[in-house]
Design a protein around this nucleic acid. Structure first.
Lengths: 237, 237
DNA sequence: CGCGGCTTTGATGTTCATCAAGTAAAGTGG
DNA sequence: CCACTTTACTTGATGAACATCAAAGCCGCG
């Protein structure tokens, strides 16, 4: 499943100006053409396949990473050597916008879990722009605020829930938040789901089996179909 | 223990200019005298006793709350109606800087757990200053980044730990981070410790008793003395 | 003085991690 | 392309960790 190759054999950089990017409105809406061109000139866009790492825990942060297309996971190794998945990020997410300005080094690795296209935006350039363009600064502040809010909210909500509730939550999360469909292909393994919500893969499997027996979901390999959304919502509580 | 009175009988506002505040360097260091005077003119400073609420979940956010002196807890009610303590904040903390810019309403209540002095800084004024003063904007961004980083780090670290490990962590947290002393008065009840680290008060008590039997700590009421710091560190893992 | 909330300890049952063992699926090398 | 290796998936059995229930003592407060 995971490809070990961490090098992009072919540099599939798509030469695209930020000014023509359909997503520019997300963060650079208020920015004047000159500033945008400077940022655009220094950005790099790269494609990743499923399993390829985009950055590694401990590496020096030099870019703001923006998910253009695809899906990634943020993960880290904890004190016990276990892997924890902190969150899933998707297009429109400025990955790690939260901690980019508090540390020199990545506190987590970022790995593609679907074919993914990423923009690397020069961080120094962003810093400069924050200082000189007020509206842009305000946008950054608001985006950061939202990003950390979402992650924290999810953590607090899940922390007191039972494994069954956690799993129901995650299934609905992928269906409603990520794929906007009750039928989807799970982008991560059972083991990784466990790493995401602090449980064991055996229990992920066990509980998914029980959901199947109760006709709440249907699965085949990584394919999942949610049959009884209401029941799932009831379980979450 | 908790005082119900949520009204300040005497308004003990200390009339103090921000420019002479010993903490101004924390956030307003780069700010010119004029901007600082504007902010100073609109700020309110209030005293709270232990147990008094500073703001309530759901209320409209109109100020940036800054802890001048004392100690507070951030708490919220979760889906199950249980109370969760999200974090403890102390002087130098801009409480909720994280989510202030993402929502119109407080997502948590703030309550003094020690006699506390708070500055309310007009939020609109802060917004304006972010837009016009680049260095100030950068400071805000960095503070926010740090704040959310710390909270998330603690959450992720604790989430996979056993109750014994969690309790050891919290005791060291109060000793080393909050009070800078291995002998201190716990500012919150056993029940609240439980709310802070997702466990039950019975188990907080049980584990503290076992620490006492093993001569790791000594307690009397809310007084705690850590006798064997190394052992506690070993337990945390 | 009595009420309510916090504290403490013991007993009990549930939830969950861990261990074990077997099957399936996917990548690897000859 | 097939044997081989590895990794993911699956189920069952077992014990440890933890929540819950119960009961009694404590303490501040009206």
């Amino acid at each position: 499943m995971k490809t070990k190759s961490s090098v992009n054999i072919v540099d599939q950089t798509l030469v695209q100006e930020c000014s023509s990017c359909m997503y520019k409105s997300l963060l650079f809406d208020t920015l004047d053409p000159d500033s945008l061109n400077t940022i655009s000139g220094l950005k790099k866009q790269t494609q990743y396949q499923k399993g390829e790492r985009i950055c590694v825990e401990g590496e020096r942060i030099e870019h703001l990473i923006y998910i253009h297309k695809g899906l990634v996971k943020l993960s880290r190794r904890n004190d016990d050597g276990q892997i924890q998945i902190l969150s899933i990020a998707r297009p429109l997410d400025y990955v790690g916008l939260i901690s980019v300005f508090s540390s020199q080094k990545y506190k987590y690795s970022i790995t593609a879990i679907e074919p993914t296209s990423v923009c690397f935006i020069d961080l120094e350039c962003i810093r400069e722009t924050i200082k000189t363009k007020g509206d842009f600064a305000m946008e950054i502040v608001e985006k950061m605020s939202q990003a950390s809010d979402e992650v924290l909210e999810a953590r607090y909500t899940l922390s007191k829930k039972s494994l069954k509730e956690k799993l129901a939550y995650i299934l609905l999360y992928f269906a409603e938040t990520i794929y906007k469909s009750y039928s989807f292909e799970l982008p991560i393994s059972r083991t990784e789901i466990a790493e995401l919500v602090d449980m064991r893969s055996e229990n992920v499997i066990r509980i998914m089996s029980s959901f199947k027996k109760e006709n709440i979901i249907k699965t085949k390999g990584q394919k999942v179909e949610i049959l009884d959304v209401e029941q799932l919502r009831l379980i979450i509580g």
